[in-house]
Simulated assay, not measured.
Amino acid sequence: MFGGMFGGFPGGFPGGGRFEASYRCYPVSFLDKPEAERGDKVFLPPSALDRLAQLHIDYPMLFQVDNRRDGRSTHCGVLEFVADEGMVYMPYWMMENLLLQEGDVVTLRSATLPKGTFVKLQPHSSDFLDITNPRAVLETTLRSFSCLTVGDTIPINYNNKRYFIDIIEAKPNDAISVIETDCNVDFAPPLDYKEPERQPAQQPAPMAADGPGAAGTAAAVEPAQPEEPKFLAFAGAARRLDGKPASESRPIAIPLPGSGRPGGAASGPASAAGSVGSAAGGDGSAAGSAPKRPGKVFGGNRLQAKLAEKAGGSGAGGDAPPRPPPAPKKEEEEKKEDDSKFKAFSGKGYSLKG
């Protein structure tokens, strides 16, 4: 059918020890062999096998596939020679890389490719990174491939999901053979990968500008003043010397001296004048001031009451009768107490001589 394209050789194959032929391409689904979609091998007609045997082509058989209409090219291997004459069946993903439709004409020529030592791949989606061991999955997939070409996009099926990977670099050539070779694999960031955004540093609060409203702004920004510390007198627990429970004490808050804040102890001429004025108004105590309640420390209330009684007696000029002294203990009681005590060696003495 295409013999006239190659100088009239039978079957369309030129001489010179190189295989080259043109065919109409169709997907492998026409042969009802969907498993062939997982590799890069094509189906050729039996006449191609006869010609390849005469040319003594090296194994494994590799071919360069060209779409001369669009200027696209790739490489592939051969799986079987069972296609109809004049036709080639190839995986559909390969037809997409070559921009081919069903029935388009492609050219196949024999090729010799070096064994690859390095290949760099780039996934299309970040989902490929979620695979537990992507290198093992890739190694299993590439067993169905015979060669790789820079610029191709190959599919990888894993866990009922299909991933697409671009071949962006290969060594030692742009087209390499991956059959029985030790090839290092590197991965580039996926096409949809985005660098994490850096959080901007928080800016400090702007300073208040000078002006009529600056005082109000500064007052609003200034934190609240802490409460003035105060000394609490008699705040401890009360204890009596006789061991009896003491009544509850009430602490008295006394502002610390030297505080100039509002509500603290006043100091200076104004406070002195106020104290003088308060002392002048009244007979013996400051007018309008509440009497201070004595604190209860070690029975202070009873001691103060006794001192007040003594002071009242002496201040009356001897009019009040003196308080009688406490009566001494009776001698009889002392004697009874002495008799009740145990006395050692208080009995009569006896001599051994008689």
Rank of each mutant, 00 (worst) to 15 (best):
A270W: 06
A270C: 06
A270P: 00
S271Q: 05
S271W: 06
A272L: 14
A272G: 02
A272H: 08
A273D: 08
A273F: 09
A273L: 14
A273W: 07
G274H: 07
G274V: 08
G274R: 11
S275V: 09
S275M: 09
S275G: 04
S275N: 11
V276W: 06
V276K: 03
G277T: 11
G277V: 13
G277N: 10
G277P: 01
G277R: 07
G277A: 12
S278F: 08
S278H: 02
A279L: 15
A279C: 10
A279D: 13
A280T: 04
G281R: 10
G281L: 15
G282H: 05
G282T: 03
G282F: 01
D283R: 11
D283F: 12
D283I: 11
D283N: 11
G284P: 00
G284C: 07
G284M: 07
S285T: 15
S285N: 12
S285L: 15
S285A: 15
A286K: 09
A286Y: 05
A286L: 07
A287G: 00
A287Q: 04
A287V: 02
A287C: 00
A287T: 09
G288H: 07
G288E: 04
S289K: 14
S289D: 04
S289V: 14
S289Y: 06
S289W: 11
A290I: 15
A290D: 13
A290W: 11
P291M: 05
P291F: 03
K292N: 04
K292P: 00
R293A: 04
R293F: 01
R293L: 03
P294F: 06
P294Y: 04
P294I: 09
P294V: 08
G295I: 05
G295W: 02
G295M: 07
K296C: 03
K296V: 12
V297P: 00
V297G: 00
V297I: 10
F298S: 04
F298W: 10
G299M: 02
G300S: 13
G300F: 03
G300Q: 12
N301Q: 01
N301I: 05
N301V: 08
R302V: 12
R302H: 05
R302C: 03
L303V: 09
L303G: 03
L303R: 10
Q304F: 06
Q304C: 02
A305E: 13
K306P: 00
K306C: 03
K306E: 09
L307N: 08
L307D: 03
L307C: 05
L307R: 07
A308H: 10
A308T: 13
A308W: 00
E309C: 13
E309M: 12
E309A: 15
E309I: 15
E309W: 08
E309K: 14
K310L: 12
